[in-house]
């Protein structure tokens, strides 16, 4: 479909940015902001989901590299700590086999099943990229293959499990949940929202490619619930261009920016809503990826329309509660 093709192309820079965040996310060390962004964008980027599955499998295998030099203590020490199991306890454990559970640890992964497909002769079958790719295709198949000749017949299960994991992760972020709902329920309003973001990204690309379209003033397009603005209306960073889009129903939105200067190690960019004299509300912090693109997915704690401007400033790593430096770029709401 032509529209799907266009959407996929428009999402390419966003998905590229997502790929840059995947390693730390896959290994469980992403910041909260990064994790939210990854989980929100994953449903839009099938290739990133495939890469994430691969990275997690690499992580699983990395675990087996730890040395086995030391003998564990005798089992008796463990048995002494065991609480008695009561009948009620047993009953409580009889939960649906496929229920989703949360580990009692931070950011615990959902170790996926082996994705290995084994042919009758014992040779591993590899999914070629074209087989699994496609614009906005749901349920991509992991391409990373286990090497050991042990996990035959689990390919379909792996795909199903990957979908389940995708849905679970998506449910953690409202936007991802909305997109999931879009796929399954075809909600027209969400389709419009996704389209608005896609269009905005496309216009950003067009603007970047054709500076004549950038204009000096921000403009805002109002549809029923979706709004967007091109920055800067004012700028202290000459090359900076940004697109800001949000949904006024749920106050969820995204900022995509290019042309900002590279920061020092202990600095970060922070996006603000601004009104009146010095009233600012942080929408979160973001960094630039290797290609100079910065992306922030946010949910505002207050109605965005209650503010008059948006601005981006340079702040200490981790962000601040109020801007401490002048805004590099400012846009009108």
């Amino acid at each position: 479909m032509g529209n799907e093709h266009t959407s996929a192309e428009s999402l390419e820079p966003l998905c590229h940015h997502l790929l840059s965040m995947l390693p730390s996310y896959a290994l469980g060390t992403a910041s909260a902001d990064e994790a939210r962004a990854v989980e929100a964008l994953l449903p839009l980027c099938p290739d990133a989901q495939v890469a994430l599955d691969d990275y997690r499998l690499i992580g699983d295998t990395l675990l087996t590299l730890s040395p086995l030099n030391e003998a564990p203590p005798p089992v008796e020490a463990l048995l002494r700590r065991l609480p008695m199991k009561t009948p009620a306890h047993h009953a409580a454990q009889k939960q649906p086999k496929h229920a989703v559970h949360t580990l009692p640890v931070a950011a615990a992964p959902q170790p996926g099943p082996a994705t290995h497909l084994r042919q009758p002769n014992g040779a591993a079958k590899i999914h070629s990229a074209p087989e699994r790719r496609g614009p906005m295709t749901a349920n991509p198949k992991p391409v990373f293959q286990r090497a050991s000749a042990q996990r035959g017949g689990l390919g379909v299960g792996a795909a199903v499990a990957a979908c389940a994991a995708l849905l679970f992760v998506g449910s953690q972020v409202f936007w991802a949940l909305q997109i999931d709902g879009l796929r399954r329920e075809q909600q027209a309003s969400l389709a419009t929202y996704t389209e608005a973001i896609t269009q905005t990204l496309g216009e950003r690309l067009e603007t970047v490619a054709n500076p004549g379209l950038a204009g000096a003033d921000a403009w805002v397009l109002n549809t029923a619930n979706h709004h967007r603005a091109l920055l800067p209306a004012e700028s202290n960073a000459e090359a900076a261009k940004a697109s800001f889009v949000w949904n006024s129903d749920d106050q969820i939105g995204a900022l995509v920016v290019t042309g900002l200067p590279v920061l020092e190690t202990e600095e970060t960019y922070q996006l603000w809503l601004v009104r009146g004299e010095g009233q600012s509300l942080s929408l979160g912090t973001f960094e630039l990826d290797a290609s100079g693109v910065g992306v922030l997915i946010f949910q505002a704690a207050q109605p965005i329309e209650d503010y008059s401007h948006i601005g981006v400033s340079i702040e200490p790593e981790g962000g601040t509660s109020m801007p401490t430096t002048p805004h590099l770029i400012v846009g009108n709401i």
Partner: peptide, 26 residues
């Protein structure tokens, strides 16, 4: 954890050994 909540692992989550080591790492 396994004693008190054995249902937290299922074959769909991969090998038990991998799952246990992943939990241990976290």
């Amino acid at each position: 954890l396994i004693w008190q909540s054995p249902h937290k692992w299922s074959p769909e989550k991969g090998r038990l050994s991998s799952w246990m080591m992943s939990v241990a790492r976290h």
